[in-house]
């Protein structure tokens, strides 16, 4: 386990001003936890975009797209620093233990294009699209101007990350060979299962008050609802519109879970 220490980086920037006098203690603590975890998560996600660059080159994707993805690495690192500044403004310390960092799959045995699309669907079309819905919701509920500005910046970048995923899938999925299409579709149940597993902790999270959600304390039930609606009303239909069998994959995940 390594440590992520953004205290020095935070000190180099002007302090954010966030008034927390009306926030219940439990909600303030939940908000600090959320921004600290988000700081680590944003930092860790930089490695995922970095791992996309070589496979995109291997698949012969346009230089513009490769460049955009390489810029996303820096954007994610910047998000971690933004989260650190909010954490400090809430009275926390911008240091945390980094969790285990899993390898990004290389998808040996499938074509370079299918390998890229598998990861792009998971990252751009699923994770980042859910992130857009969640951050946009949180931004609507944000109170202090400083929190709102940070969420604005994060949201603007998450929109770019999601949009790149959808653009690549829309461009390439309809033209896939039968073999490549089968390889991409075979991965969809695992992608969806992963999304459910990743977001399931929302169901155990407390539900913060208005004052708490205004500074970033999570409302577990609300977040879960955002996630499920985004999956069922945006992502699955969106992938279907690209000619991929996403509805069947989503149904397969639910059958697996019902049988478990």
């Amino acid at each position: 386990m390594s440590t992520l220490d953004l205290r020095r980086a935070t000190r180099r920037r002007p302090a954010l001003e966030i008034d927390v006098r009306d926030v219940p203690a439990a909600d303030l603590e939940a908000a600090r936890d959320n921004w600290r975890e988000r700081m680590a998560s944003e930092h860790a996600s930089a490695r995922v975009f970095a791992a996309l660059v070589a496979p995109m080159m291997r698949a012969g994707l346009p230089e513009d797209d490769v460049r955009r993805v390489s810029e996303m690495v820096t954007q994610e690192l910047d998000h971690a620093r933004l989260c650190a500044r909010v954490l400090v403004a809430l009275g926390g310390e911008a240091v945390t233990t980094m969790p285990r960092l899993d390898d990004v799959p290389e998808h040996a045995g499938v074509s370079p294009l299918a390998a890229v699309l598998r990861n792009v669907i998971s990252i751009g079309c699923c994770s980042e699209t859910v992130a857009v819905a969640l951050v946009a919701t949180e931004r609507e509920l944000a109170g202090p101007e400083a929190v709102r500005r940070v969420l604005d910046q994060i949201l603007a970048d998450e929109i770019k990350h999601s949009r790149l995923g959808w653009r690549l899938v829309k461009r390439h999925a309809p033209l896939l060979s039968l073999r490549d299409r089968a390889d991409v579709e075979a991965y969809l149940p695992d992608v969806f299962e992963h999304q459910l597993r990743f977001h399931a902790p929302f169901l155990q999270m407390p539900c913060a008050s208005d004052a708490g959600t205004a500074i970033g304390a999570p409302h577990g039930r609300s977040n879960w609802t955002v996630f499920v609606e985004c999956m069922t009303q945006t992502i699955v239909p969106g992938l279907e519109a690209c000619g991929l069998g996403a509805a069947e994959a989503w149904a397969e995940v639910q059958r697996r879970r019902a049988a478990a």
């Binding site: 996600s45 285990r100 899993d102 990004v104 990252i123 994770s127």
Partner: peptide, 8 residues
């Protein structure tokens, strides 16, 4: 947790 952020 954050290590799970990324493709499975």
């Amino acid at each position: 947790c954050s290590p799970c952020w990324g493709p499975p």
